[in-house]
Simulated scan of single mutants.
Amino acid sequence: MHEVIAHGVPAALVALGAPEVEACLEYRVDDPYAVSMAFGAGCALGGSSVAWVFARKLLVDGVTTSAGLGDVRVRPYDPEQTVIEFWVDGACAVLLLRTEDIRAFLSATYRAVPLGSEWRRISWDEVLARLTEGQH
């Protein structure tokens, strides 16, 4: 079984009158370059839960400087808060999280897989099998 680090974090959806939402940051050691952030059904159109997957390094960089050019962007708001923007089809959801919560989550991921050692956790045989699947 692969180790999974899950960390619930309160997040403020930045919109007039929007309630605080519970989000969950997740890190899987078998996918060492990625983190995911999931939101419950209360945050999604149509009542479905939503999850975004993005690079752990984006979160690492984003707590100290603006990071990301695509669908997920992370930047400091002030010394205690970090903004995460999720873009889709020209629309943007903006979340405000406590930087302390993000750092605690990242610390747990570093204990599981230190930065720079991610490549050691990749099952290269599985990657090669997926890449060559159906090519016989």
Rank of each mutant, 00 (worst) to 15 (best):
E80H: 11
R73C: 12
A67T: 12
F54R: 02
I84A: 01
A91D: 10
Y110D: 15
G116C: 05
V88W: 13
S107M: 11
I84K: 01
L59K: 00
V63H: 03
C92R: 08
S66Y: 09
T82S: 02
R98N: 02
T64R: 12
W119E: 15
C92H: 04
G68S: 08
Q81L: 15
G62D: 06
L97K: 00
V113W: 05
I102K: 00
R56Q: 06
W119C: 15
E100C: 13
V72L: 07
Y77K: 04
T65R: 11
D71K: 08
W119Q: 15
V60W: 06
P79H: 04
G116D: 09
L106P: 06
V63Y: 07
P76Y: 01
V113H: 05
V74A: 05
T64F: 10
A93T: 10
V72S: 03
W119A: 15
W87G: 12
P114Y: 02
S107Q: 10
A93N: 10
S66W: 04
K57Q: 14
V72I: 08
F105E: 00
L95A: 10
R73Q: 15
W119R: 15
L106Q: 05
R75W: 07
S66I: 08
Y77D: 05
V74K: 02
V83P: 06
G90E: 11
L58V: 01
A108L: 14
Y77Q: 07
P76G: 03
V88N: 14
L115S: 06
A93L: 10
A112G: 02
P114H: 01
I102T: 02
L69Y: 08
A112E: 06
R98G: 00
D61M: 03
P114M: 04
V63I: 14
V60D: 14
L96C: 07
F105R: 01
V74F: 00
E118Y: 09
E118M: 08
E100F: 08
A67N: 09
S107I: 07
V63F: 03
T64Y: 08
A67C: 06
W87K: 15
G70V: 11
T64L: 13
E80Y: 10
G68Q: 09
T109D: 00
L115G: 10
D78P: 10
T65M: 08
G90D: 11
R111P: 07
A93H: 05
D71T: 08
Q81W: 11
E100M: 12
A67D: 06
A67K: 10
E85D: 15
L96K: 13
G62F: 04
P76M: 03
A112R: 04
A104C: 07
D89T: 14
D61T: 02
A104N: 05
S66T: 11
E100I: 08
A112L: 06
G68C: 10
E100G: 13
C92F: 02
A67Y: 09
D89I: 13
A91K: 12
L95F: 08
E80M: 14
L58T: 00
V63K: 04
R75T: 13
A108I: 11
T64K: 13
G116V: 07
P114G: 04
R98T: 01
T109R: 00
A108Q: 12
V72D: 05
S66H: 12
V74Y: 00
F86N: 07
L97Q: 05
D71W: 02
G116P: 09
D61S: 03
L97P: 05
V74W: 00
V83R: 09
